[in-house]
Design a protein around this nucleic acid. Structure first.
Length: 223
DNA sequence: GCGACAG
DNA sequence: ATCTTGTCGC
């Protein structure tokens, strides 16, 4: 049975994005979240199934608190701008079985740096009413721009004269990432969180670990 | 019509 | 995202 919150056709998906985009809040974070969840997906060999994982980490200790995995049949194609309708359901499933509720979501993909200002980070953030940040490895929209080479250097990601995110250097000699608020977060906070969770990789640690876990789990034998 | 296009 | 070999650098 299709998840009600995720229409299976592009027409209704776009309409839902336009509607939910109105609920996004770009408010500053009250405080630095302690429990953070990184999420990511992988496609099982054969392309019939999608694996979603959530890695919960504690900021003060840097420890992994919990990891959860979910699998679902793949029912939505990859369409630029509609990624959340492909990966959203399985990611929600993985997040739903976490014992502890995260205070923040770090997502692989865009937040408001999206044609309708509603990327997967925004979508998950709004549905779960959690602060969220989108970290994209490549650009969906907005103008490309050269960034300084030091860690922490950044440039605004501009689209039609509006700042929709940041092009941020998280490591030297490594391509910058595209950071944007998902929900209940502002541009400054989004950048600060990504840098605060940097542990030597291009992506923030929770997302980096979620990426590795998903790629391990996609080959796992099902019980 | 043409180019661009998260994962 | 996935496929896919060796290679360069920390």
């Amino acid at each position: 049975m299709p998840t009600p919150e995720f229409p299976q056709d592009a027409k209704r998906a776009v309409a839902l994005q336009r509607q939910l985009a109105g609920l996004v809040q770009l408010t500053p974070l009250a405080r630095l979240p302690e429990l953070v969840a990184g999420v990511d997906c992988a496609i099982a060999p054969g392309g019939e199934e999608i694996v979603g994982v959530a890695v919960l980490m504690r900021f003060s200790t840097g420890e992994v608190v919990e990891e959860q995995v979910a699998r679902r049949p793949l029912t939505f194609p990859y369409v630029p701008g509609l990624l959340s309708f492909r990966e959203g359901p399985v990611l929600l499933a993985a997040l739903a079985v976490l014992t502890l509720r995260p205070e923040l979501l770090l997502c692989d993909g865009q937040g408001i740096a999206h044609p309708r200002r509603f990327g997967i980070a925004s979508h998950l953030g709004v549905l779960l009413d959690l602060p969220s940040v989108g970290i994209g490895k490549s650009r969906l929209c907005g103008e490309e721009r050269v960034v300084g080479e030091q860690r922490g250097d950044w440039q605004p990601l501009m689209d039609k004269g509006i700042c929709i995110g940041s092009i941020l250097r998280t490591r030297e000699r490594v391509r910058p990432v595209y950071v944007s608020p998902g929900h209940r977060c502002d541009q400054e906070g989004a950048r600060a969180l990504v840098l605060a969770w940097g542990r030597g990789h291009r992506l923030p640690e929770p997302v980096h670990l979620a990426d590795r876990l998903s790629k391990r789990q996609r080959l796992a034998v099902l019980p």
